[in-house]
């Protein structure tokens, strides 16, 4: 099977998986005890007025009807209307998605680049101070609660040294100033994203570094490494081209799994840094029983995980020419 056919096959699989996820989410949210209108309690709102609101949201319809409507709307690209925001869910998700992609993708790229590079180096120079120090450093942040690390970073870098803002993504001084250039605005975003990005990176990089180190140590014992040395190839070539490339396969697998597992960390980080991303939207939507918004947010995250897995599969073929789809 060619790579193109494989990708098409996987895309179909992803689509079917999404339908299953959607169904499970629909059932799970309806099974949750609680009432979406509980958060609109007002002593002057009579039960009749609440019934009007329930009808406006379609909550007075039978569950099976709500499910069919949900599927029908999904295939039409309509994710429904948020109960809480009274806005189309698609607009809300699209509004938050760029910030989340910037933070989460940025932290994956930096933490895996850092982890792979460091893992490669410490395996190559096994037993040195660098290995001891980086392992200790990485494990410390890996084990610490992410919100605690976030708060400490806020306290040191934002409050004590005043280097970074305490939260948000855009500062009023830059964004409400009509003379601000696009570059200054971009820098302001970078300025706001730096701390949360650092926290997520610190939390993630140890995992990839340790997997890479272990994998590299095994690879270095392979016969073809000895052959490369016997051929007189430079050490750097042996390390980067012969050993590291093969050692990266388990890291790619770990990456695909970590994307799913790191969602919780991302949500906590966004909350700690008041970062306006999908993570906070999910928390709010779940707490307020905002079914359409919660379903769509989880769906987009599920899609991100599935796409990450597809990317990992494609990377396998790139990293190891023996893998053919």
């Amino acid at each position: 099977m060619s790579m193109q056919k494989y990708i098409v096959k996987r895309v179909v699989q992803i689509f079917l998986t999404l339908i299953i996820i959607m169904t499970i989410m629909f059932i799970l949210f309806r099974m949750m005890p609680g009432d979406p209108t509980a958060f609109m309690l007002d002593t002057r709102m009579t039960p009749e007025h609440k019934a009007i609101i329930r009808a406006q949201f379609g909550l007075d319809k039978p569950i099976w009807y709500q499910y069919l409507l949900y599927l029908k709307n999904f295939f039409r690209g309509n994710f429904g209307r948020s109960f809480y925001y009274a806005r189309p869910v698609y607009d809300l998700v699209m509004e938050k998605l760029p910030a989340t992609l910037l933070l989460w993708t940025g932290s994956y790229v930096i933490s895996y680049s850092l982890g792979i590079t460091l893992g490669k180096i410490i395996a190559w120079r096994r037993g040195g101070k660098l290995e001891f120090g980086s392992t200790l450093f990485g494990l410390f942040f890996y084990c610490m609660p992410i919100f605690w690390v976030g708060l400490i970073m806020l306290w040191i870098f934002s409050y004590k040294f005043g280097l970074f803002p305490l939260g948000g993504l855009k500062g009023p001084d830059v964004w409400s100033d009509p003379t601000s250039s696009i570059w200054l605005k971009a820098l302001d975003v970078l300025h706001h994203v730096a701390l949360p990005l650092s926290v997520l990176t610190l939390a993630f990089f140890a995992g990839s570094m340790l997997v890479m180190r272990t994998s590299m140590l095994e690879t270095l014992r392979e016969d073809y490494i000895m052959t490369a040395r016997a051929k007189g190839l430079p050490e750097k070539t042996i390390r980067d081209r012969h050993a590291a490339r093969n050692a990266m396969l388990p890291v790619v697998t770990a990456f695909a799994i970590a994307v799913a597992g790191s969602v919780g960390g991302g949500v906590l980080t966004e909350t700690t840094f008041s970062y306006p991303g999908l993570g906070k939207l999910i928390v709010d939507a779940t707490l307020t029983f905002d079914y359409p918004l919660a379903q769509a947010s989880f769906l987009f995250i599920a899609l991100m995980v599935l796409v990450a897995n597809l990317v990992a599969d494609i990377l396998y073929a790139y990293l190891d020419p023996r893998i053919v789809y």
Binding site: L154, W155, L166, G167, T271, F273, S274
Partner: peptide, 20 residues
């Protein structure tokens, strides 16, 4: 008047003490 958003009380208190 600028309404700034802080998701946590900890961050808001740091903002107040910092003068933000």
């Amino acid at each position: 008047i600028v309404y700034r958003i802080y998701d946590t009380t900890d961050a808001a208190i740091l903002g107040l003490k910092k003068g933000e």
